[in-house]
Amino acid sequence: MLSGTGLVAGYRKGVAVLDGIDVEVPAGRVTGLAGPSGCGKSTVARVLGLLQRPWEGRVSVDGDVVDGFRHSAPRAQRTAIGMVFQQPRPAVDPRFTLHEVVAEPLRATGRSEPIEALTEQVGLTAELLRRRPHEVSDGQLQRACLGRALALRPRYLICDEMTAMLDASTTAALVRVVDRQVEEHGTGVLAISHDEALLERWAGRVLRI
C-alpha cells in the first residue's frame, strides 16, 4: 500500500494546493484519481512519487513512513514508485535517444541488462529507439516514458494524466500495458485524469478531489 495521510502541500508560501487529503493506492489494482484542472491532482502525484515534500501529513510506502523526498529519499523507496507524466516532451532529456531514455533507470542503479523485453512490451521498435525526442511523436515518446517508469519493476506506478496528450488507439495500448503490469506483477497503480469516463472503465475505484 502506497498511502498519503492528511497531505497539505503547495508551491507558494501560504497557498496550499492540497488541503489535508488522504490517498490510498493498494497493490494489485488500479485506483483512479479524478478532479477538475487545478485541483491538485498533479501535486498528489508529485508528493506520492516522493518528488515534493508535503507541508504536513505523511507518506508511507508498504508501511514505512517516508522522511526524505527527492534525493533525500532512499533509492529503494524512490525506485519503488514509477512515474509517468502528462507531457512526455519536457519529461525526457532532449539529448537522449529513446534507448537511453528507457535504459537510464537501469544504468543509474548500476544494472547492465538489455531493455528489449521492456521496449517490446510498450511497443517501441529498434528503429524508434535510435531516434531522439524531436524525431518522434508524443505517443511514441510517451511509450518510452512508460517503459522508463517500468524499467525498475516498481511496486507502484503513478500515471499523471498519462493519456491526455494521446490519440485513442495509443491510449488503449498504454492502458493495456499498465493493466498487464497489474495482473502479472501485482503493481499498484494510481491513474490520475480529468477524464472520468476513462477512469470509470479503467479503475476499480475512483477517488475524487
Partner: peptide, 26 residues
C-alpha cells in the same frame, strides 16, 4: 525545474549522476 530531472530522481539517479548525465551535457 524540468520534469526530466524529476523523472531521473524517480529512476534512482544520484545527485552526481544527474549532474553529469543531464546538467553537464546541457
Amino acid at each position: 525545474e524540468r520534469p526530466y530531472i524529476d523523472a531521473a530522481i524517480s529512476g534512482g539517479a544520484s545527485r552526481l549522476r544527474v549532474l553529469y548525465r543531464h546538467f553537464l551535457p546541457a
